[in-house]
Nucleic acid binder design. Structure first.
Lengths: 250, 250
DNA sequence: TTGTCTTATGTGCAAAACGCATCTAACTAA
DNA sequence: TTAGTTAGATGCGTTTTGCACATAAGACAA
């Protein structure tokens, strides 16, 4: 099967490209952002309705091309700023999508990013960019099994997604679920001060499960990431909960 | 701080690019492969010595440009085939590196891939591509802390790495360590039939620690991924171990 | 003032997972 | 037959986890 190679040594067929890569046609390079937050205890992503030709009427992730003098992270920050009007949120690279016919107009390779928006940032984005819609993301698989996701309008209608953006959203949920309980990403969805119940709500919303309260509480407190602020939640008609801050481990 | 945006709605500055993206200069797009296997119980990556201008004399990961009609995975498989002469090994996308001055010649964005080579595939690559060198990878941090890695020649000399390939190697080790005990990637470094000891050796080499034998054995057997073949290891001067096959969970 | 409602927070305990020492099995070589 | 070596199993104390339940702290209404 691979014996055809035994006879001849490996030839560096790329050496021409190494010397004159401009001789080859290049794919266009873009970034697409999953702007993810929580609405009423469920994951929600900010989407734009496409008005123009390819996939007109379908819903797309905010994105943009990568400038020749722009790093990938800078391009993602630029989209965050220009298309959602926000800064200062958690942003991480997700995966790079390079299928040939992702975009029917031309070959575009897209580096997907995941931005995590606390409730305030999500509201701010909706205010600053009125064309954005917070679509509920249904994840019909459990754990890290993977699979499709469905985007729903605030009224509950299924939103058809443009390009391969359903795949990108699925990858975002998969990665977030995978990282949630061994990393500190969960805190990126919370305001600076939060209660243990809010932290548990974040985990339950992302994982799509319910969690045992005393066990969750113990596990989180034992991690050493939570610093009590001394003050308490206000405005409840019952016992107010302690407010904590996220303290990155020393 | 972000109030400057309150006055004006978000403008789609990308719409020109959406219509005529060829008007913008594009970064070149490449793939770089971490070909990782184990040599004498330690991680090893296949590197090429650069003979030409940028970083001449330094050691680089095999890579190549992404063709306009090539998916990213296809480009990675092509490199695997042309530069290492192998096929049929585990290959997964790692991360995309896009720093502005990664390559001094021009702007090149590179999608890094991780290929996991069982011992036979590693030997085959070394035979088919004699310019490849199996460099030992030292990982001087524990767990998933992250940090630098060092490449060593077979004689133990430090090999200076080209471009940002040290970062790519570090990312490869980080990801592999992270995935090792919740996924089935470990089996990608083993032949079809293997003993529990060999499986443990793989885990120990990747993690850079020793593991408790009975606990490891129990954990692996309880996962349901191991199917006993009924036959036993040959050629030992002591009790031969049972050979297992990897059986993806039903 | 007191009792009720509701959620926060703490406790006790059984089940499961894990680390570790140790025991037995199976094979070679002398 | 015996020594040497590693595979594989077992027992047990410790740690982690799941879960039921008890107690604490606030608002509110009678």
């Amino acid at each position: 099967m691979q014996n055809a190679y035994k006879a001849r040594p490996v030839i560096e067929t790329e050496f021409l490209a190494e010397y004159d890569p401009t001789a080859y046609e290049r794919p266009a390079l873009a970034v697409d952002l999953v702007l993810l937050g929580l609405r009423e205890g469920r994951p929600a992503a900010l989407l734009l309705k496409r008005e123009q030709h390819p996939h007109a009427g379908r819903w797309a992730l905010p994105g943009g091309f990568v400038g020749i003098d722009q790093t990938l992270d800078a391009a993602a920050l630029h989209v965050l700023h220009e298309k959602a009007g926000i800064t200062g949120v958690h942003l991480e690279q997700l995966y790079t999508f390079g299928a040939l016919a992702r975009d029917p107009r031309m070959r575009i390779v897209s580096v997907a990013y995941l931005a995590l928006l606390p409730e305030a940032a999500l509201a701010e984005a909706l205010e600053r960019a009125p064309s954005l819609v917070a679509a509920g993301i249904e994840v019909p698989w459990s754990g890290e099994a993977g699979g499709d996701v469905v985007a729903l309008s605030p009224k509950g209608e299924v939103l058809p997604l443009a390009f391969d953006h359903a795949d990108i959203l699925a990858m975002a949920m998969l990665r977030l679920r995978g990282k949630l309980d061994y990393s500190d990403v969960g805190f990126a969805l919370l305001p600076e001060h939060f209660t243990l119940r809010q932290l548990q709500d974040v985990h339950e919303a992302v994982l799509g499960t319910t969690l045992n309260k005393p066990a969750f509480r113990r596990r989180m407190l034992d991690r050493g990431w939570l610093a009590p602020t001394g003050s308490r939640e206000a405005g409840t008609s019952f016992r107010p909960a302690e407010l904590y801050r996220f303290q990155p481990s020393r």
